[in-house]
Every structure is written in C-alpha cells, then in structure tokens.
Nucleic acid binder design. Structure first.
Lengths: 289, 289
DNA sequence: TATATCCATAACTTTTGAGAATCGAAATCA
DNA sequence: TGATTTCGATTCTCAAAAGTTATGGATATA
C-alpha cells in the first residue's frame, strides 16, 4: 500500500469518477485504474463497484474511506512537524556547564535565551568540564559550555568564546605578596594549590609553569576554583585563578614571561545535527561575548 | 512518501542499525540506505546522524518517530477493518499467553480452533501476563489470554473467562500440614514463596493476605508457578496456588475468612478492530469455559 | 595492529508505474 | 433506434524506481 494509492483512492471516492480523479492528479486515467486495481489486489477486496459506466463505493471502500483520511492526515501532520523543526525553536535542550562558567559567564546569555524562547525545555546540568565533554561525546548532552579541552578530539567541535586569563595569586598577607620582582623559582618554594588531576585547568596551569614543573610542590587539590580561592586566601599556598575570583584577600603576582590563559567556550558533537534550540543558545552565547 | 519507507524508518529507529533493519525486512542493507536517503530527501531533513559506524536519531527523526507509528497503526487498522468485512477466518493471529494459562486452560480451545480454521497462521507466544498485556497495548499482539490485570486501563478490553481460586498450600510433610484449625498468624511465621514483584498474581495474593502483610516473610520469588509448586513441596515455604497445580506433595490449608481468587481471561486492545481470526478464537475460548 | 562490522556508493538488473492507443459497454442524443 | 459520446479496462512500450552485488572508507573490537 502506498500513500499515492490512498490519495488516488480518496480522489476517486470524492470525485466519483476515475477520469476526474485522473485530471485532479495530473495523470492519465489508465494510471488511476491501475492504482485502484493494485490497492484492491493488496486488500483482497473490491473498493468500487463498476455499475455500467459509473462507479460506486463497495463495502470495503466505505470501510477504507475514513481510514484513508486518517492515514493521510497523519502523513500531513508528520510533514508539517518536520517542516516546523526548521523554523521553531522549541523542545528539549540538554546543556552542561562547569561551575565556574555557569556562574560567571553564562547567566546573561541564559537570561536572554530563556526570555526569547520560552518553548524550550532547558535541562541545565552543572558538572566539571571533562564530564560535560564526555557527556556531549556520548550524546547525553546537546552541548557543553565549559573550559575548552586541550588536545584534539575529532568527535567534538569546539568554539572558543571567551579567553580567561589566570593570574598567579597568593594571600594578601603572604610573605611573597610584598616582593617587587618575583622569580618563578621563588614561588616554587611554596606549595601550589591545583585543580584535581584530569581537569583541563590543571593541565593548562602546569603547562604554563613548565620551567619549574620539576620543583613544584603540590599542596592541595580540589575540584572547585572557589575552594582554591579560599585555600589560597587563608595562606595555604599559591595558585592561578581567573580575574572573576580575585578580590582583596588575594595579591596578584606578576612573573616575567609567564602568562596563563584558558579558553572557555562551547563544545558540541562533531557529527550530530544541532537542534534549533542548541543553535540558538550558541548564538546567544556569542552575542554576550 | 511510502508506507514501506515509514516501516523501514521505524525498523531502523527501533533496531538502531541499517543492517539489522535490512535483515528484519528481508532486503539488503543498501536498499535500506536508499529508502532512508529517499525519505530524507523528500522531507528535506536528516533523520539519522551517522556517527562513526553507528547511527542516532536526528531531531527530525525524533519528530517523525511517533508520527510514523500513528500512520502505520492507521494502515494496520484499515487492513483489519477490510479483512473483517469478509467472513473467512484466515491470516495471521498473534496470541500471547502466560505459562500457566497456556498450559492448563488454553489447550482445548486451541485444538478446536486450530482444526476448525487451518488457514490461520497462529503465532503463539509464551510470556508473563504483564508483558503480554503490554504487548497488546503496543499492538504487538492481537490478544492475550492471561491472568487479568487489576486496576483499570482504558486502552485494554478485558473479558473474564475463568475464575481461578488459589489455595494456600504447604508441603505435605510440613509441620503446619497437620494442624486442624490454622490461623493466618501461625502461617506468617513461615516464609512465603511469591511470584516476582509486578506480577498480577503476586498482587492478588498479597491483597488477600492484607491482615498479615506486615508480618509476612518473603522467602523466595520466581516468575513461574510450577517453580513455586516445586519450592513449596520441598518445604521451603508456603504459597497460594491454583487447583491445577496441587497434588499429593502439597497440603491445602483452609483459613477462616481468606479466599484468594484470580481471574483469567482475554485481553485485547480497546480501540483496535479485531481480526476475524481473533474474534473466532475468543469465541472458541468462551466455548470451552 | 589486524579484524570485523557498519553505512555509503557505484554498476547493473529487475520491477514498477506511467503514457499512448484502443476496446467494449452503456448512457445520451438525434 | 442507431449514432455518438463517455467511461473504465486492457495492451504495449518505455522510462523511472528500487532492488542486488560488489566494493570502499571509517571505526569499533580483539
């Protein structure tokens, strides 16, 4: 059974004539004859009684008529829904973000997006950047707004949105806070407080500190930059933190030749089609850059 | 758009693979590829994302999936209605039955039906009652002959055919087997052997034992009454079993005020037209009541 | 790293379906 | 009543659609 056959059936039933149905469908009358014959063969029942040179719906045709309408309605609805996908921004959107990005970079974009597109069901999940990237790769998230991973992964598409410079900081009351020109070696005497192993930010900091990597004393590790800030400010060590976290409790230490920058942005699956909602929120994020 | 294309789409979406869908449809994999490509071209949207060597539904595919089911249901209904117009009883009949009903209640009806209507292709599947009801609801079965579910489900039509009283039983050699007047509390001292959670029979037994439900010690669980019979007869606990399973190894224990009855019968989809074959076998089942 | 699996593509073949021409039956008209 | 028109069925031809086989590239898997 074919959609065309059903449409033909409907046209014949409504027009009461093979010839008129043929005109309506812009095909020849023999084609109509054959389509109806094929339908009848498939269903094993006569759909029309050929009474002389006119036709009438047979019982099976009467039974089929409302069903054919239902089916064709369903087909139309399916087409309309898919066509709507290319216009409407709606439906579910699963977004993962890291604690830091979610709290300090995402809110404006989120507010704008949420008011502009109320039909999107936003499922916002906080997690660390690495877990978010993994979830995107697995198809468990539509996109992640996180610290962009280093290295390359062909399955992920990355778009840098923000540069997030990290400053080396010590407690305001720390002995090193007073020093005028500080050399890296002097810093390395004190313990460094770092994100947990595996975290991208940790990798970036360690890469920037490569000259003294051998001498670094790793003091504490935590998975949350706010905690690092707290630990540094009570004098447990030094670290590298983004501007947004630096306040009067901390002293920024400039070191010749050392510049630490991490990239924040959007990670999506390279091979999966983005929903309109996903594209729209990415656009909103770009706009608030 | 063609019915076949939709069926192909559904098969791919459900099996998660072009190759498996090809096997299911008895055509080659390139044919599947082409059908899906044709559908995608017609709808102007990608239905699947080809991620490496596996596939995932794209947004348009997610939108199409429920519509495709609706359309195909409509086609099936149309065919059934037309087939029902003719009086002959033939064609496929997918019947699900539980182990117990299938072995102890259905055989006479089945024998009569099978000899009376040799042109029916009977597809008889054993499964537990709950799975059978679910399959009927999904349209994967034409009817189920099972323990009737409690509660109400507007999508299912139930017809009670048999009452199946369950008797409380212990092993013939069990200490309680000798007791003259047994109170429920005394029984509850020993572990009860029950069908697995979710099984209707379990619910019925537990509802009947409501007075001591708190004190019940659930010893073992299994999904097959014959197994319960075996476990009880070797003395691992007590249970409630239908008469058909009770033999000399077991002792029936009468308890004042406790009567456990389950209902066995036919479950069909409330909104679907029954095929002639389905109506006929239901008639046969009623006749052997 | 080798192997197996999976989807896409190309080349070829078969099947399907449309059109042109024509026929027979029956309604319509002179 | 007989000629004419109308309508659906049939036949033949051809092009398009859809299937198969063979093969290739990419990627999980052992």
């Amino acid at each position: 059974m074919d959609i065309n056959d059903l449409q033909t059936f409907l046209a014949v039933a409504e027009s009461g004539s093979f010839s008129r149905a043929a005109e309506r469908a812009f095909i020849t009358q023999p084609a109509i004859s054959k389509r109806i014959a094929a339908l009848e063969a498939e269903l094993g029942a006569k759909l029309f009684d050929r009474v002389g040179r006119r036709i009438q719906l047979a019982p099976a045709g009467i039974a089929l008529l409302p069903q054919a309408r239902t089916i064709l309605d369903g087909v139309g609805e399916a087409k309309r829904r898919i066509a709507a996908l290319s216009r409407d921004i709606a439906g579910p959107l699963r977004l993962g973000t890291s604690y830091h990005v979610g709290l300090h970079r995402l809110p404006p974009a989120l507010r704008q997006f949420y008011t502009a597109h109320p039909n999107v069901q936003l499922d916002l999940r906080f997690m660390d950047s690495e877990a978010a990237c993994h979830a995107v790769e697995q198809g468990d998230l539509d996109l992640a707004v996180v610290t962009l991973p280093r290295g390359s992964n062909a399955r992920l598409r990355r778009e840098k949105v923000w540069e997030d410079p990290l400053e080396i900081v010590v407690a305001a009351a720390h002995p090193l806070a007073a020093a005028r020109h500080l050399r890296l070696q002097a810093l390395a005497e004190y313990p460094i407080i770092l994100p947990v192993p595996g975290a991208t930010t940790r990798e970036i900091v360690l890469a920037a500190l490569a000259p003294v990597r051998r001498n670094l004393r790793i003091g504490l590790e935590t998975n949350y930059l706010e905690l690092i800030k707290m630990l540094v400010s009570i004098g447990l060590g030094w670290s590298a933190l983004p501007h947004t976290l630096i306040d009067g409790d901390l002293k920024v230490v400039q070191i010749e030749g050392i510049r630490i920058v991490r990239e924040l942005g959007v990670v999506t699956h390279a091979a999966r089609t983005l929903s309109n909602a996903a594209s729209a929120i990415i656009e909103a994020i770009r706009a608030t850059k």
